[in-house]
Design a protein around this nucleic acid. Structure first.
Lengths: 165, 165
DNA sequence: ACAATACGTCAGCTTTGTTGACACTCCAAG
DNA sequence: CTTGGAGTGTCAACAAAGCTGACGTATTGT
């Protein structure tokens, strides 16, 4: 309390500030999903399909179990989504080479095309937001979001980030 | 391209950076909802109930239509949630004074108590994240999120922000 | 040979969203 | 004073996407 640095750190953490952060998160997430949702709706897919497609594209050859860990859903739930994607020819499921119990998941050409469409729309919004803000704000945005993740999710996020370019 | 300032601004807008922003948003939102979800689960409520409670607390006396605008769902969907909250004695629905077709919504004592519990848990995480980052990062976080909202949502957000302290 | 793992699937349930249809109350305008 | 329309509530039916539990099959490793 008497420590000036500590006081300064607490200065902007009023309940009002926090509540504004909460509401910002709520409204922004809706914007974040709005564009892909519109595309998906016209294809009779949902957000669950988008997530599967995103992370298969992100880590081609990933196994079902790995995808379950990332998405945090049950295999029954994921399977329903995965089945339709495979039936529709967007995802390919290949028997694992080293361990043949595993299934390695890949996007087909069509799957890659849809992924592009979805991520293009989402990136466009993200790009506009990043541009409207600025480099420093973007860094802050990322740091706060990372601090908000649960432990396991943070691990997943970081591991994906390393995998990336 | 030859403009150094413009180049610098574009530097952080690579597809890789944007994708990291997208994944950060996805994982962070899960952390954001995790704590309230755990509380709600033990009460047989869901996120829809939380949202209703949050915004009724935020703007006591709000009408159903206003709530529909904020939440962006159908009245049938909201009504189901609202009904259980009223039956359970968490929300009170009073006939409007100026226009008696309207229903003004208020939290009861119990409703206020639950709202506290939910928002306390969510604020705690937000506070921890804000603290782990820092004032500048928080400002950036908020600016990027606001830029990410859809027009209508941004209006709602700003109007709520003004209403606040 | 046998237990454990990875995956798929069947059945059934829940929450939260959707449409469409209809009734009631009430305000305001003709 | 009647009537149209807005605000609200409710019924029915349905869909997406999560869940649990149980079971079967293929494969692996001990």
């Amino acid at each position: 309390m008497s420590d000036p640095i500590r006081s300064e750190n607490l200065l902007y953490l009023t309940d009002e500030q926090l509540r504004q952060g909460i509401e910002a998160m709520y409204f922004a997430y809706r914007g974040f999903t709005a564009d892909p949702d519109r595309i998906l709706e016209s294809l009779a897919y949902g957000r669950a399909h988008h997530r599967a497609i995103h992370f298969i594209n992100r880590a081609p050859g990933t196994t079902v179990t790995n995808l379950l860990d990332i998405l945090g859903v049950t295999k029954q739930s994921l399977n329903r989504v995965l089945r339709t994607l495979i039936e529709d020819g967007l995802v390919e499921s290949r028997v694992g080479t080293s361990d043949r119990r595993e299934r390695n998941l890949y996007l087909t050409e069509d799957g890659t095309a849809l992924e592009r469409r979805l991520s293009d729309s989402q990136r466009a919004r993200m790009r506009a937001a990043f541009r409207e803000a600025g480099p420093d704000d973007v860094a802050g945005f990322r740091r706060v979001l990372e601090a908000m993740m649960e432990g396991e999710m943070k691990r997943q996020y970081r591991s994906l980030r390393e995998t990336g370019k």
